[in-house]
Nucleic acid binder design. Structure first.
Lengths: 205, 205
DNA sequence: CAGGTTTTAGACTCACGGTCGAAAACTAGC
DNA sequence: GCTAGTTTTCGACCGTGAGTCTAAAACCTG
């Protein structure tokens, strides 16, 4: 299940509504640094497994009081990290978002769409997966992110063929209900890499 | 041949270097409006066939004097428009860019990459093509944008299968060297539409 | 050892696009 | 008007990659 970190606004505007983490840019500060700074001030997130820019919004009506520019980012952490969060902050399932401040719901959904698209043609799964995992775990992770069932057979073949995944050589013993031991895998590289094969109208051989 | 509109800077910094069109954002102005405003002030571009945001850059070192944020956009016009440009402004081939100011060369090349990628999985060709065209013309256009030869046979089959193109029903008489008359086509819609078929790990049937 | 469970592997099929060659439709020159 | 050359169009072939299904493998429990 995909979750997004939100904090509940105490002050107007949008008091009581939920907001994406963020804050103002300091002078001469880079956008990515600002993101990490504001995030670290809120929660104990050692580091994001992936961070990419979504879009800069400039609509003067997106804030009721003042005209402000916002650059939205998509930040990901693996499923196995669960940082401590303050009282006004919580993880929310992306399927059941609460009433959100400003245009933050649109931004959150845009982030999900970006994630879904990039799962198809990049190795972005690394940003959600723990260091090692079984194909069943990865299948569930992809299913949650994509919003539909995923075939473990197909997932394995696709990601192995692309050289995205590699077997660790070890196995995980089955659970109490039995079953064949599951082979353990890892992502070959844990930084973004696109799969070129998707270009249609390829250069001639 | 892909071309980009540049103007030559008269003042420091980067006097004599070439720069992408643009300018400062007015208060309460939307980014897209600002783009169109600054562009209209320079050249007689009635309207862009496509305009999309690339990235917002915040590196404090990208401008020698002051820290400024820049949001880069990709704007496209069809091949058959050739607006009048002032003396300090000219079209430059993307393959032979002159010495450019700031990080504008990186931005221009990023725009080209975005265009190339989207030609593969969207109908973005509409933004470069005239209202009607032959397959040979469209093949040359795609070849120029993609940087490699394109098969007219394949191009036609792919774009027709996706429902991106439709025949106009008319023909263009051959040139002085003869040849079969070419069928005329047009894009079914002249606004961006992605081809969903590219999602790998599709939902089960 | 039998039955249940989970994972893995192989085979089948289909859709899409890259390639090639031939046919169609025209111009120009003899 | 006939032939040669040119450009466009059409059809056929084929390889690849992915979706699907079924069986086999490897484990648990009783």
């Amino acid at each position: 299940m995909l979750q997004v970190l939100l904090w509940e606004r105490a002050k107007e505007p949008f008091a009581g509504c939920w907001s994406l983490p963020g804050g103002y840019l300091a002078p001469r500060e880079k956008l990515e640094e600002s993101i990490r700074r504001h995030l670290a001030a809120k929660v104990d997130v050692r580091e994001l497994s992936h961070l990419e820019q979504l879009e800069t919004l400039s609509d003067p009506d997106r804030h009721p009081d003042e005209w402000q520019l916002v650059t939205a980012y998509l930040g990901l952490v693996p499923t196995d990290v669960d940082p401590a969060v303050p009282a006004d902050t919580a993880w929310h399932a992306l399927e059941t978002l609460p009433t959100m401040a400003f245009d933050h719901e649109r931004i959150a959904l845009a982030g999900r769409e970006r994630l879904r698209a990039k799962l198809s043609y990049t190795n972005l799964g690394f940003a959600l997966a723990p260091a090692t995992f079984t194909m069943a775990e990865l299948r569930d992770l992809y299913a949650a992110a994509l919003g539909h069932d995923v075939s473990a057979t197909n997932l394995k073949r696709v990601l192995l063929r692309r050289g995205v995944l590699e077997p660790i050589g070890d196995h995980r013993p089955p659970g109490p209900s039995g079953g064949r031991p599951a082979e353990l895998y890892r992502f070959r590289t844990r930084s973004i890499a696109i799969t070129d094969q998707f270009a249609v109208l390829r250069p001639p051989a």
